[in-house]
Amino acid sequence: TVPSFTGTADLDALLGKDLGALRDIVINANPASPPLSLLVLHGLLCQSYRVLSSVHVHSSVSSVPPQLLSCLGPRHTDSYSRQRFQLGFTLIWKDVPKVQMKFSTQSMCPIEGEANVARFLFRLLGSEPKDPIVATQLDSWVDTAFFQLAEGGSKERAAVLRSLNSTLGRSIWLLGHEPSLADIACACCILQDGKALSTPANVQRWLQACRNLEHFHCITP
């Protein structure tokens, strides 16, 4: 089995003092382009914390496919008491141009873009690289994923696939021996498209390894 994302996180240290109320992370996403990376990260958060997950449909969208309504898994049996949870993960399907996260509305502006929200959620796991070089590499892969893989043209995609292939020739995961947000972001952006056109061998192997990670089940049928 693959080593999972282990870290020691103290929510009080990461998010400030516990004020006695549920810390609810609100994510607005457009059902036309579901943020797969955030669904994977949600699964990881559930492993580390008691997370109250809920999915809502905003009045700005009228019909949402049923699989998106249950994308955070079945309702927690304790969900009648919000106070019993450490984190709230509230996913709202809404007509928004970009994925948006709202957390502490009094002190934080809304965070826009799936990449940035993914970084925030990943840090809550406390397993981000401590070495500044590796941390920057991670950031760079995340940018590559969302700007070039997800939004780029076919030439750009092909170029990224080549560089992925050569990197994955040297190590199992993008940043070395352990999977990280870099792998989640890149894999999700390739999978999102559906047509994994002529992926090179190393990338194929790595994609399969990603699929084998526990929390990819929610996005790959």
């Binding site: 109320a21 549920l22 809502h56 905003h58 009045s59 919000r82 106070q83 709202i92």
Partner: peptide, 9 residues
């Protein structure tokens, strides 16, 4: 509005 409705304590 949201569906299902938001419930806070």
């Amino acid at each position: 509005f949201l569906e299902p409705t938001l419930r806070l304590e």
